[in-house]
Amino acid sequence: MSPTANSPRYSRILGTGSHLPADRVTNQALVDRLAVEGIETSDDWIVERTGIRARYFAAPDQTASDLAFPAAQAALAAAGISAEELDLIIVATSTPDMVFPSTACLLQQKLGVHGCAAFDLQAVCSGFVYALSVADSMIKAGAANKALIVGAEVFSRILDFKDRTTCVLFGDGAGAVVLGASAEPGILATELHADARHVDILCTPGAVSGGQVIGTPLLRMDGQAVFKLAVGVLEKVARSVLEKAGKTEADVDWLIPHQANIRIMQGTAKKLKLDLNKLIVTVDEHGNTSAASVPLALDAAVRSGRVQRGDTVMLEGVGGGFTWGAALLNY
């Protein structure tokens, strides 16, 4: 129901969508690829430590906006609106098509529309939750009525395939939601954080200068440090968002955390005293798709019939920066 001039103004998710590239890469296929480079690992080693069994890699000529486009189309179709009705497009990505213009502007071009605000948001794996919070605030303030929020990544481009501790973790994909103004609460509460004291534990410290890449354009991660920080901050921000919304853990029907590592995800659920059956898991098939992981998992849960209208859903992200955040919503 749309808000009237005198009614409170909220935002609700109107539709979801997602897209994965065609190349599904199993653990064994990746193990065989690494063996050529003299790097030893195994399917058992990857599954035991991460829960990942496969991931998808974009084709060499596919960009983040190429993956975002069909995800956006699916979300628009689910919402029952046309791209022309959008007045805001936000793309959360750490792997943009180019230095500029933004991937959001390139997506706007692919959608065949013009005029609405479009920009990228960079918070790495927390990017989608950050973008959702920004769009929610803009809709509540009356600066937008219908927003398209996309998480899209081609992380395969920045992986070091000589580092088995990182290259087995990540994949490519895109997820999207359409957010619309409503007289009924949808996004109940959000909260965002960053702590740059930990900037070095997960980063891709490269840049372009004078037509050359300077620094290291490949992903680096201190896995143990990330694990320790992630579980703690995800529990804390979830409890804070619940308190803001006047809810408790018992009110949560589904937890959809950033799909990075099954142990982090299960650890967060246990700290929140949630039944693991309430945990949405796609990391086994998608790997870590950074800003795309939460909307990919949300769309999978919606389309499988698990998440239904009226359910209370907790979304959480954590990533390089060090950034983290959560959003509680009435789907």
Rank of each mutant, 00 (worst) to 15 (best):
R53K: 15
A64M: 10
K146V: 14
G305H: 06
V237A: 02
L169G: 08
S182V: 12
K270S: 12
V36F: 11
A230M: 02
S42I: 03
Q122H: 15
L328V: 15
V31Q: 03
G15F: 04
S293I: 02
L242N: 04
A194H: 09
A152Y: 09
L272R: 01
P96L: 05
E85I: 14
E184K: 10
Y130K: 05
L219D: 04
V294P: 02
T216M: 10
L315I: 13
E85A: 15
L179D: 09
G232R: 09
V213D: 09
L14I: 13
K278S: 08
R263N: 00
Q224V: 13
M265Y: 05
A292Y: 00
S240T: 13
V294L: 01
S133F: 07
L106G: 13
G15E: 05
A183I: 13
A131M: 02
A131G: 14
H286M: 14
E243K: 00
L329N: 10
V31W: 04
P21Y: 01
I149T: 00
F100H: 15
Q212K: 11
S126W: 03
F227P: 04
V208F: 11
A297L: 09
Q108E: 05
L188I: 15
R164M: 10
N288F: 03
L88E: 06
C116N: 10
L107C: 13
A71D: 07
L328A: 13
N261Q: 08
G180Q: 04
K273T: 10
A292C: 06
A74S: 11
S137K: 14
D284P: 01
V307P: 07
A77E: 10
V129Y: 02
D251H: 04
V47R: 11
G142F: 03
G186L: 02
K273C: 09
D87W: 03
L179V: 13
T41R: 07
A183S: 15
T26F: 05
S126T: 11
V178L: 02
T248C: 11
T204C: 12
S2Q: 12
N288G: 09
A78D: 14
T16S: 07
M221K: 02
N27S: 00
T323F: 06
T289Q: 06
I158L: 14
L276M: 14
A300C: 04
S304Y: 09
H19D: 05
V134D: 09
K162I: 11
T41A: 03
S42C: 04
G211E: 08
I90D: 05
G287E: 04
A92P: 04
Y130M: 11
E191I: 12
I89S: 03
L279A: 08
P21G: 00
F322G: 08
P295M: 06
I187G: 08
A83N: 00
A238G: 06
F57E: 15
Q212L: 10
L229E: 05
D172R: 09
H198Y: 15
V294C: 06
V99D: 11
P8M: 05
D251N: 07
P21S: 01
I201Q: 07
G51W: 02
G317D: 03
E184G: 10
T248L: 06
V91Q: 00
P21H: 01
E48W: 11
K162F: 13
Q109M: 14
G211L: 03
R197D: 15
V36W: 09
A83F: 06
S102A: 11
K236V: 12
G38N: 02
G319P: 01
L86D: 02
K278F: 07
